[in-house]
C-alpha cells in the first residue's frame, strides 16, 4: 500500500512585518547613516589628497588609486566597524529583549498550569512580544472569569433551597459549561 502523498505547502518566510520588517528597517537605517558619514568624510579627504598630489609636481604613482589607497582603506575599515558594530549591538539588544519577553510569557503560561491565572506577564519591549503577552493575559483572564463563574454556580447549586426540577436543569447546564473549559 502506498503512503498518501502530503500536499506540497509553500514555506512562508515573511511572517510578520512588525518583527522582520522592523529589524530590516533598523539595519537599513544603520547602513544609511554609515554611508552618509563615509560619503561626507571620505569624499572630502580623497578630493583633498588628489588636489594636493596634483600640485606636488612629481608623480611616482601609476594611478590615482595609489594616492588614495591608504586613507581609502582606513575610511572603509571605519565604515565597516561603524556599521557592523552598531548593527550587532542593535541585534543583540533585540535578541535580548525577545528572549526576556518570551521567557516572561513562558513563565506566565507555566504559572497558569499551577492555577495562577492572574499574575500578568508584564512583557514590554519592541515588536511582536508585547502583543503576544497581551493575548496570553487575555486568554488567562477569560479562563479565570469562566472558572469563577462555574465555581459560583456550583456553590449556589450546592446550597439549599433549589427545587428538584430546577436543580436538574442547572446541573446539566453546569456540566455543559465545564465541558467548555479548554475544548
Amino acid at each position: 500500500m502506498t503512503r498518501p502523498q502530503r500536499p506540497h505547502r509553500r514555506k512562508i518566510r515573511y511572517v510578520t512585518p512588525r518583527l522582520q520588517g522592523g529589524a530590516a528597517l533598523l539595519f537599513t537605517a544603520v547602513i544609511a547613516a554609515g554611508g552618509i558619514a563615509f560619503g561626507a568624510l571620505a569624499g572630502k579627504v580623497l578630493r583633498r589628497m588628489l588636489l594636493s598630489a596634483a600640485v606636488r609636481g612629481h608623480y611616482p604613482m601609476r594611478s590615482a588609486f595609489e594616492i588614495v589607497r591608504d586613507p581609502l582603506a582606513g575610511h572603509l575599515a571605519a565604515l565597516f566597524a561603524g556599521t557592523f558594530l552598531p548593527a550587532a549591538a542593535l541585534f543583540l539588544f533585540l535578541a535580548w529583549s525577545a528572549r526576556r519577553g518570551i521567557d516572561r510569557v513562558g513563565q506566565a503560561l507555566r504559572a497558569s498550569a499551577d492555577r495562577d491565572l492572574s499574575t500578568p506577564t508584564g512583557v514590554r519591549g519592541c515588536a511582536e512580544i508585547p502583543r503576544l503577552g497581551e493575548l496570553v493575559d487575555g486568554a488567562r483572564a477569560e479562563t479565570l472569569a469562566s472558572l469563577r463563574s462555574i465555581r459560583s454556580e456550583a456553590e449556589n447549586l450546592a446550597g439549599d433551597g433549589v427545587p428538584a426540577e430546577e436543580f436538574r436543569l442547572r446541573w446539566d447546564a453546569l456540566k455543559q459549561r465545564i465541558r467548555g473549559i479548554a475544548p
Binding site: I12, V15, Q20, A23, A98
Partner: peptide, 10 residues
C-alpha cells in the same frame, strides 16, 4: 532579516 528571523517570527 526575512530568511533568518522567521525562525522567531513564525
Amino acid at each position: 532579516c526575512v530568511y533568518i528571523l522567521h525562525r522567531v517570527a513564525g
